[in-house]
Design a protein around this nucleic acid. Structure first.
Length: 474
DNA sequence: CCTCGGTTGTGCTG
DNA sequence: CAGCACAACCGAGG
């Protein structure tokens, strides 16, 4: 009918990018393009981090802009808060539909609830698509009886029961209807991808891993060029101290911003597994790594205050010290020891790439501090033994990233303060002069803190329930 | 109530 | 290089 085609042809839609910075497997983009006369691809985010992390985002936006330009459109980067910007563009562009990818992080949830309200007031239909995670985490929780599983084993069983995640969405059309000309809020001069200077940084970024969908897909292809490696991947066998050629795919920062779709990654894995029946299994397999991400997103999205200790029901309440001096020493790398970051050695490479999912970061801190998921608090990593015995006896990683220690004999490189003064002088690294003295004695503090953890666990049992209280009194 | 098992502990002893 | 002390963990599933 004429009226139907006229109203369908008049559809004006906005596709709002926050994460999901890609055109492949993007159901929100597909929906926005369906029967649309004009599609406004916008980016708005209040992401505030250090310059290197921000630059990864800017590179991703430039890549996304290029993808839209190749389809006859362009990305509009809107300045300002979504609560102010969105109502304005709804009116000015005559938008009938707002499409975006579901984001379950606390900040995003609150923001999107307000945006749903504003869209309703403006008569704009909201279409929110699950595509950041493999599954709809609400469905997973429902299938698990209303609460998220708390062990990786039970989570893996759950996804086995649910079956394969949805396949990636089809590619977007080769031509996307561009914004209508002459719209002030879409002014090309005011909506271009900013530079790092424009965002307010004064120090130039140092790029290690380039951001963007193009680079993400290139990295994915590079990893899958060796299907045997993919099929035989076992995380505990990967060396976190490897830096010349990383032992893992280094795809996680691309997954965080959605430059790479987890569903595409998963589908590619299943294709390899079909050809290599003797592939490894979760939790250690490459698919297992995607399931870890999914696990933490599922627990994170359905646990109040997941990114905090207080008010977080799965987190042990532990009276941590707040020692500003130690904290600053750690932050500024003046501890004199190589202290582990979350995910142990992987944390050190994270430090280099500095792009980590919010929930995964929170989960790893809880894991490592025996606050949740992992509770054998008496198994404490030694910053010396871990690298020295397990992954990097020669200290190549240290020599590369702490050049002051590059001539220190391997015997002392993990504990330079134990080297005789003559050895320190010959290596050009005298502890207390060229290199900070250790701020604490690991052996002593580790023992003391284990005892304090035992005390904290006992206190938590009292809080946990009447059984615990009775046990304490008995 | 019970058992099982957990992606990666350390350090000493024999 | 295996075995064990450390100090006694906790969610899932039966």
């Amino acid at each position: 009918m004429a009226s139907a085609s006229a109203s369908a042809g008049a559809k004006v839609s906005i596709v709002w990018f926050r994460k999901g910075l890609r055109v492949h497997d993007n159901p929100a983009l597909i929906e926005a393009c369906r029967d649309a006369a004009h599609v406004y691809p916008i980016f708005q985010s209040s992401y505030k981090v250090t310059v290197n992390r921000y630059n990864f985002l800017l590179e991703s936006l430039r890549d996304l802009d290029n993808s839209f330009r190749a389809r006859g459109s362009r990305l509009l980067v809107l300045r300002g808060k979504p609560e102010e910007v969105l109502p304005r563009v709804f009116r000015e562009w005559g938008a009938k539909q707002l499409c975006f990818e579901v984001d379950t992080e606390p900040y995003a949830k609150a923001r999107d609830a307000r945006v749903h309200q504003l869209a309703a007031e403006a008569g704009v239909e909201v279409h929110a698509a699950v595509s950041h995670t493999l599954y709809d985490t609400e469905m997973l929780v429902a299938r698990h009886g209303g609460s998220p599983p708390l062990t990786m084993q039970s989570f893996t069983k759950l996804v086995d029961r649910v079956g394969d995640p949805p396949p990636p969405a089809p590619d977007p059309p080769a031509a996307i209807p561009p914004p209508a000309p002459g719209m002030p809020a879409a002014d090309p001069a005011a909506t271009g991808v900013p530079t790092w200077q424009e965002v307010g940084f004064t120090e130039a970024p140092v790029t290690i891993f380039k951001g963007g969908e193009t680079e993400a897909l290139r990295r994915l292809d590079a990893s899958f060029a060796d299907p045997k490696w993919v099929a035989g991947f076992q995380k505990p066998d990967t060396n976190p101290a490897a830096f010349e050629r990383p032992a893992t795919t280094v795809l996680s920062p691309y997954l965080k911003f959605g430059c790479l779709s987890a569903r595409l990654f998963h589908a590619r894995l299943l294709a390899v597994y079909r050809e290599h029946k003797a592939h490894t299994q979760p939790p250690v397999s490459l698919r297992g790594q995607l399931l870890w991400r999914e696990f933490f997103y599922t627990v994170g999205a359905h646990t109040p205050n997941f990114d905090r200790m207080v008010g977080n029901p799965i987190c042990k309440q532990i009276p941590w010290d707040t020692n500003e001096e130690f904290y600053n020493a750690w932050r500024e790398a003046r501890t004199g020891e190589q202290l582990p970051a979350p995910d142990s050695g992987a944390g050190r490479t994270c430090k280099a790439r500095e792009v980590v999912d919010h929930y995964i970061n929170a989960a790893n801190w809880m894991w490592l501090s025996a606050s949740a998921f992992f509770s054998q608090y008496f198994r404490v990593y030694s910053p010396v033994t871990f690298g020295k015995k397990v992954y990097d006896p020669s200290g190549a990683f240290i020599r590369r990233f702490l050049p002051v220690l590059k001539d220190m004999p391997a015997k002392y490189i993990y504990e330079p303060w134990t080297a005789p003064l003559e050895v320190q002088r010959r290596a050009g690294c005298v502890v207390g002069v060229d290199y900070p003295r250790p701020i604490l004695d690991h052996a002593v503090v580790s023992k003391r803190n284990t005892a304090r953890m035992a005390e904290a666990y006992r206190a938590n049992k009292c809080v946990a329930g009447p059984g615990g209280v009775v046990d304490e009194l008995a």
